[in-house]
């Protein structure tokens, strides 16, 4: 009897000692009026990891996410680091005023103490919504975060339809982005910035069938914050 009880007591002690891990629900809300978020990458990861650093050059994986919504590169890097990863919780684009919820439990991986969230903003050339490695709260409760729109600095903001492939000009226009965007823009004269920074917003124009931009100024502009993230510690 004692032989059975002893390991049980030890196990109970181990489980009750660290209170660092918890069960979280994370809700992401698109606060913009006309911007779609590509499939979100939501991750709890170690504190020494980050998906992007303002002022620094974007990684190739960040570039692929920001220019075309491809989160596979960032996801593999997170996976290599032992992170908890949730991909595409909205099952596609997250439209204006829409929310999506993610459940994260780091009981079995308590080193994953920080939360990052990214997705491309459409229509933009290389704009993205970015929650930057925020420390997950420990105490029970509900916590709200304002999240900014960033420019990856990897593609000139010419604002015309084109490719979502890294290094290729233009923005991809799936489904509702196609419907809401203009056509036949001549392209804005813009340069690659070279570093991640707070997005200066799209310029757009009001000529749906021409003009300089295929982005519609009266529809697609935004102001920070572009998203609200709500974390509930269950």
């Amino acid at each position: 009897m004692k032989l059975i009880q002893l390991p049980t007591a030890v196990l109970a002690g181990v489980l009750s000692a660290p209170v660092l891990a918890a069960d979280y629900s994370v809700t992401v809300t698109n606060l913009t009026r006309g911007i779609y978020f590509t499939p979100l990458l939501v991750s709890a990861h170690p504190a020494d990891m980050s998906l992007f650093n303002p002022g620094a050059e974007a990684s190739p994986a960040l570039q692929a996410m920001a220019e075309g919504g491809d989160i596979s590169g960032l996801s593999s890097a997170l996976s290599d680091g032992g992170a908890i990863i949730v991909e595409n919780p909205a099952g596609g684009l997250l439209g204006p005023a829409q929310s999506t919820e993610v459940m994260i439990n780091n009981d079995d991986a308590p080193d994953n103490t920080n939360l990052s969230i990214v997705a491309m903003m459409l229509p933009t050339n290389d704009g993205f919504v970015g929650m930057p490695a925020v420390a997950l709260p420990m105490d029970q409760g509900t916590y709200h975060y304002n999240v900014l729109g960033y420019d990856a600095g990897t593609e000139a903001n010419n604002e015309i339809r084109g490719s979502g492939a890294p290094g290729e000009a233009g923005f991809p226009a799936p489904g509702p982005v196609d419907t809401a965007s203009g056509t036949n823009g001549t392209g804005i004269n813009a340069e690659v910035e070279g570093f991640v920074h707070v997005h200066r917003n799209v310029l757009g124009d009001t000529d749906a069938a021409g003009g300089a931009s295929d982005i519609v100024s009266t529809v697609h502009r935004w102001l920070n914050p572009v998203a609200r993230v709500t974390i509930t510690v269950n």
């Binding site: 980050s50 992007f52 650093n53 303002p54 002022g55 929650m131 930057p132 490695a133 925020v134 916590y143 709200h144 975060y145 304002n146 999240v147 900014l148 993230v229």
Partner: peptide, 10 residues
């Protein structure tokens, strides 16, 4: 006003 603002980066 009930809003925690995330740091901009490391």
């Amino acid at each position: 006003d009930g809003v925690n603002n995330p740091p901009i980066g490391p």
